[in-house]
Design a binder for these strands. Sequence first.
DNA 1: CATGAATGAGAATTCATTCAT
DNA 2: GATGAATGAATTCTCATTCAT
Lengths: 221, 221, 221, 221
Amino acid sequence: MTSVEEPARPNGRIRDAVRTRAEILDVATQEFARAGYDGARVDEIAARTRTTKRMIYYYFGGKEQLFTAVLERAYGVIREAEQGLDVEHLDPVAAIRRLTELTLDHHEQHPDFIRLVSIENIHGAEHIAASEKLGKIGSPAVDVIRRILASGQESGLFTADVDAVDLHAMISSFCFFRVANRHTFGALFGRDLTAPDRREHYRTMLGDMVIAYLTAERATD
Amino acid sequence: MTSVEEPARPNGRIRDAVRTRAEILDVATQEFARAGYDGARVDEIAARTRTTKRMIYYYFGGKEQLFTAVLERAYGVIREAEQGLDVEHLDPVAAIRRLTELTLDHHEQHPDFIRLVSIENIHGAEHIAASEKLGKIGSPAVDVIRRILASGQESGLFTADVDAVDLHAMISSFCFFRVANRHTFGALFGRDLTAPDRREHYRTMLGDMVIAYLTAERATD
Amino acid sequence: MTSVEEPARPNGRIRDAVRTRAEILDVATQEFARAGYDGARVDEIAARTRTTKRMIYYYFGGKEQLFTAVLERAYGVIREAEQGLDVEHLDPVAAIRRLTELTLDHHEQHPDFIRLVSIENIHGAEHIAASEKLGKIGSPAVDVIRRILASGQESGLFTADVDAVDLHAMISSFCFFRVANRHTFGALFGRDLTAPDRREHYRTMLGDMVIAYLTAERATD
Amino acid sequence: MTSVEEPARPNGRIRDAVRTRAEILDVATQEFARAGYDGARVDEIAARTRTTKRMIYYYFGGKEQLFTAVLERAYGVIREAEQGLDVEHLDPVAAIRRLTELTLDHHEQHPDFIRLVSIENIHGAEHIAASEKLGKIGSPAVDVIRRILASGQESGLFTADVDAVDLHAMISSFCFFRVANRHTFGALFGRDLTAPDRREHYRTMLGDMVIAYLTAERATD
DNA sequence: CATGAATGAGAATTCATTCAT
DNA sequence: GATGAATGAATTCTCATTCAT
């Protein structure tokens, strides 16, 4: 009889399989983010990996599915980060300000993710649609916003009757644009939206705007 | 002002050349916007034109230059539209609100332009850099904003010490995001940011936010 | 007669081996018949089996040998059926007619076998040549024909001086063609040679033809 | 001005195009006939041609369409040959005998065509179905048979009430089988159905059989 | 100015087979 | 006996670009 008592831990080969898969995803993320879906080369991805092109097909099935897997993992990372948001102990105004700052920082720290999302939009979000993992996953950030808004509205601090998803869109817009469109914006206006010495400026500006909006005096309906 | 009038009576061949060039640009705009730079096919562009593929090379030199020409024309159209902005007869608050509305409408009406800009950003704005026409062209909209801000600040209506380019970025962010990222946003949050029956909602929301920001009560520095 | 009985009580493993082997052959038969030798996929065969691809190599050695094994078993089935032919108690004319009918029926009932034979002919019968089991095995049907012809010629019923192998070829031709070429024939002539409601027609037609040939009045040489 | 008086004849390049196309078809016919659809290699076909693999895709679109074009031409050749059948000046019996002989000869002379038809049947005649040229084209041979049968039946020489398409199937069966299945038949029965010194034997045999069938004494219905 | 034919270089994908356990 | 992971070598197909006229 062969040894049946295999350790519960995966053996070396399986462990390698997991690592190889992750390595392919790492490289593919960079390559897709760098060149777009059609611009990325499976050959190039393979070359920058310790495995062969053949393994990409073995693990993922094809370029399309590889891109989907890249997206899935990228969104997963974002979700994890959002789950780590810890702002609800602050008062509503401070919480929103902190949230906008963290959102801006986070976008700045993940330019590849931003690019992947731009690319996926060029392709009509078809990979998200094809993914089982990525159907309406919502976002922890929206949940956080929803709770802060409820708290702020209850206390009368927030006068705006704004929806959490819409506010999330509003906040994300600037954070996303700042990174995604920095090349054309820089080229056309000569201003680098992601210059480190202007980061604080934009963090403040975005926070000011959102807070101003939420707390503005409003005529009684 | 540059001469907008075409020279009187170009002969038939020149006229055809102009028309052919325009036709190629029309089709190429759609095709690049649809599929991205690498996803677009020169064959496909040619096939949807009354001329042949050879003409694309004759007129533009290659795919790269064709894309640059597409970008140049697209930005030109935007600039022309911005030059038509007529809001300075309004009081600063109304002017800003009107400007945000027009900006939002304009983005919605030009999804292909939005896509081209996303695509150009994926490619690091290298075509803008290579273009002679598109160096730091700025934008008439920024000039308009600059003048409104000056007026509003002078009159004390605007308390914020905001820069015109930054405010332009802020306004554009939401308008751009709403169109560019509508696919992923819709897929992930189940909300169509460009649904016609929500357009008014977003116009108001964006205007409210910008106005709130500009007019917020501020502690004296 | 060869021993048909399996050895008493093979142990479980052997039994499994026998069953696994048979299962692979079943699936491989379908797959080769469906797609041809080169069109068949070892992966596909394995996937439709309860075992793995590795087992195919373990049991058969490779795709080539698997196909040979499929052929060997298919010819074996045919031979067994032919051995069951029981027409010699009939008078020669009735016996030939019955034989043609059974042959026609049998071909119709084994379209996969027909396809395998077509495929093997495309490959110049190289697998038969490579097989130890399939060297000039002849066919029980030919033996039956030989005996009927001898009887018919002896009694003067059959006037034709025909060879058993040739007559077998003649009978098989139509039965084979009717199944093997039904797709092209149907597509080109709009007639389905294997339509159930025409089966009786073709059985009669073939029998008539063979009988007419064997019993035709002939000038004395 | 450039010379407008181009000769009505196609110029050198076009002429080459026609020749190149024909050359590709020649080689592809051999290669597909030799190895089957899946066994054939586009690379191999290209290598045996004066052009490159790229041209095969330029001219035909792909392997599938190339095979279809090969089939179309092969069937075209057959039809042309059948249109040259000149047997109707003979009396019905002689005409049928001559027709069977010519059919047998023709199959023997076109083994590649036979193989292509076998291959197409393995693939369910899908390429014929996809071809615009090859939909129910029927066959001139059937028309000839139809007229001979009518004449023979009218004169009372032919007693059989046989349909022309069925008789064509019957005659073709043997001619086809003799070539298509010669490898397996030879391997299993040790008889070469296409041995030159047996050709006359089979021509006679087939003619005898068909004539016997058509002229057999029949009980009055 | 205009055009159909041509193409080199490369791209994604597949397949039978083997290895480590 | 049995198995999932791995893979080298091919295979089909594509694409931007240029040539001859």
